[in-house]
Design a protein around this nucleic acid. Structure first.
Length: 570
DNA sequence: GCCGTTTTCGGCCCGACTGTTTTCAGTCG
């Protein structure tokens, strides 16, 4: 059974291919359908009998979905592929290449995939094509380099998959845990490690190798089996005995550097730590649980997110690990898009979902100003929106919807909304949405200038990176952090799985100077759930509740926002 | 191809930026 993501990808590909044929509206229709499918909360087979009820799905696409569910493929797409046998998905991941350029590359140079593209660019063939030039050729080479370096998957893709696999496997095992970098909640994941206790390893491995989505079985044994999923992700399943489960969990969670250091400490104490347990001579003195291992080594328990050998071991020895923020500490989400701009859902529905999540408040920050994505709001639009928010606030009290906006930082560091409008807002998220290619000096100045604006509450996705697509723009982070402190500006941890920006390392650096806020940048109800990835970045960045604005109660938040910006952090 | 107090046809989000093009197409958000 193909996953929702796989079916969505089929429609995205159709859209790309139709776009090459200069189709316009069908392209939009297929993309819309793909977006719907991708964000369904349950497997699409659940909706099989009333597909046309789903937004953006009509008779024709419903029929195609059924064909995919029944046969595993789609004749229409195969026909399109035969017309132009080009690896669209691969080529589209090269930044700056869209369907039109890909088409020219295919027609003029016979380029079918990234490898062909690289060769042609290196040979200088691309610069002579109409619509291309030397600069484009250079950009293509750089984009290829970046995309190829990024064979890692984003946490947001792997974690839900990992949980699904673990839940399936746990039907056949006494205990199943996700280990490795996924358990440590690293922003990008190389492969997925799963650990289990089972009295029927044979059966468990059978189930594992026959999971839906398995493309290839790399190796298969009773204690270790490795598979590759259709999306290219490698998954290792290891089965160990109950008595050494804790040490195995510890060992397979890593990181490698963290483990090396732990083993050194064990050695210094005349002990030996391995995946099979903690030993003194031949006697096993621990290994059933992780807790007893850390305790026996004279350490506080180290949460998996901190296990990177970034000072956590020393802190644990001194009993000085921070009390990390957790999901339950989050009292609200302060960067949410509604259907007033490019979001999908109404403020009312978003608010209801936030209430369900136990939040005390939310911030509606639709696009405002020059970047007219999906009809970004102007001042009049904002005022209309405020009326709705005032009404909802009466209705939903004590829950509180804050009036906000996401504004653009232009190339000079100015905000594209006048101050007399900005000052009427509760929250202003300022972000860079264009002009990523400036020098470090230019980009740093630009962000710093934006922070000087007295009404900018925080900088959205401060580095602009997109996981696997583009690195962040060049920034002197220390200068940004210092400016944030000087001006009372917060920095965002954007929880969107493709962003995770600030990342863990930056977050850790930032809290030495300023406060952070974890936002989802949700464009639909289900995106509110991304918050856990942002919390994970914060935890990996050693953040406590006190470092994060949206752990504040509504009362404290309002008093913070009422304080003049320059005095907020003092 | 989808959708509907513009409802079975006709409209569908659109502006900024970039590089190359001397007036604009392609890409991005």
């Amino acid at each position: 059974m193909p996953s929702n993501k796989e079916i969505a990808d089929i429609f995205y590909e159709i859209a790309d291919r139709l776009e090459m044929e200069d189709e316009r509206f069908k392209v939009r229709a297929y993309r819309r359908a793909a977006e719907t499918i991708e964000s369904l909360p349950k497997g699409i087979e659940v909706y099989k009998d009333n597909l046309t009820q789903l937004p953006g799905i009509g008779e024709a696409i419903a029929k195609k979905i059924k064909e995919i569910l029944e046969t595993g493929k789609l004749g229409y797409l195969e026909k399109l592929r035969r017309q132009m046998p080009v690896d669209i998905q691969g080529l589209r991941r090269i930044e700056g290449l869209g369907p039109k350029k890909i088409k020219v590359l295919w027609e003029k140079l016979g380029i079918r995939n990234v490898e062909d593209l690289k060769k042609a660019a290196e040979q200088g063939k691309i610069r002579n094509l109409e619509g291309f030039g030397a600069k484009t050729e250079q950009d293509i080479l750089e984009a290829i380099k970046f995309a190829q370096g990024a064979t890692r998957f984003s946490l947001g893709l792997v974690l839900p998959l990992a949980e699904q696999l673990a839940s399936e496997l746990s039907k056949y095992a006494e205990r199943v845990d996700i280990c490795g970098s996924v358990r440590r909640m690293k922003d990008t994941i190389g492969d997925l490690d799963i650990l289990a206790i089972s009295t029927e390893p044979q059966k468990l491995m059978d189930v594992f190798t026959r999971l839906p989505g398995v493309a290839k079985v790399l190796l298969r044994g009773l204690t270790k089996t490795s598979i590759i999923l259709r999306n290219g992700l490698q998954v290792d399943l290891r089965v160990v005995g109950r008595e050494s489960y804790g040490s195995a969990l510890q060992y397979f969670t890593g990181s490698k550097q963290h483990n090396v250091k732990l083993r050194t400490i064990a050695k210094g104490k005349g002990m030996k730590l391995s995946e099979y347990g903690l030993f003194k001579g031949d006697e096993r003195i621990g290994g059933g649980s992780e807790e007893e291992i850390y305790k026996a080594l004279g350490l506080e328990f180290v949460p998996p997110e901190l296990r990177e050998d970034r000072g956590e071991i020393e802190a644990a020895q001194q009993g000085k690990l921070p009390k990390l923020v957790c999901l339950e500490d989050i009292k609200g989400d302060l960067h949410i898009h509604s259907d007033w701009s490019d979001g999908r859902d109404s403020i009312r529905r978003l608010a209801q979902k936030c209430i369900e999540l136990g939040y005390e408040y939310m911030g509606v920050c639709d696009h405002v100003g020059r970047l007219r994505i999906a009809g970004a709001l102007d001042y009049n639009g904002l005022r209309e929106q405020w009326k709705e928010i005032d009404q909802l606030n009466k209705e939903l009290a004590p829950f509180r919807i804050l009036k906000g906006a996401e504004v653009n930082i232009d190339k000079k560091g100015n905000i594209d909304l006048p101050e007399d409008v900005l000052k009427q807002l509760d929250i202003v998220v300022a972000s860079i949405h264009f002009g990523f290619k400036g020098s470090e000096e230019e980009m740093t100045k630009r962000i710093c200038k934006a922070m000087e604006n007295p009404y900018v509450t925080c900088i959205g996705h401060p580095t602009g990176r997109m996981i696997g697509i583009r690195p962040g723009y060049a920034l002197a982070m220390e200068r940004v952090f210092e400016k944030a402190r000087a001006t009372g500006t917060l920095l965002e941890i954007n929880s969107h799985p493709a962003r995770l920006d600030l990342n863990d390392v930056h977050a850790k650096g930032a809290i030495e100077h300023t406060m952070l806020v974890i936002n989802t940048d949700a464009h639909a109800l289900e995106h509110l759930g991304f918050i856990r990835y942002g919390v994970a970045m914060a935890r990996r960045g050693w953040c406590t509740k006190a470092n994060l604005l949206n752990t504040y109660t509504l009362k404290d938040l309002l008093s913070f926002l009422k304080t003049p910006k320059k005095k907020r952090l003092s």
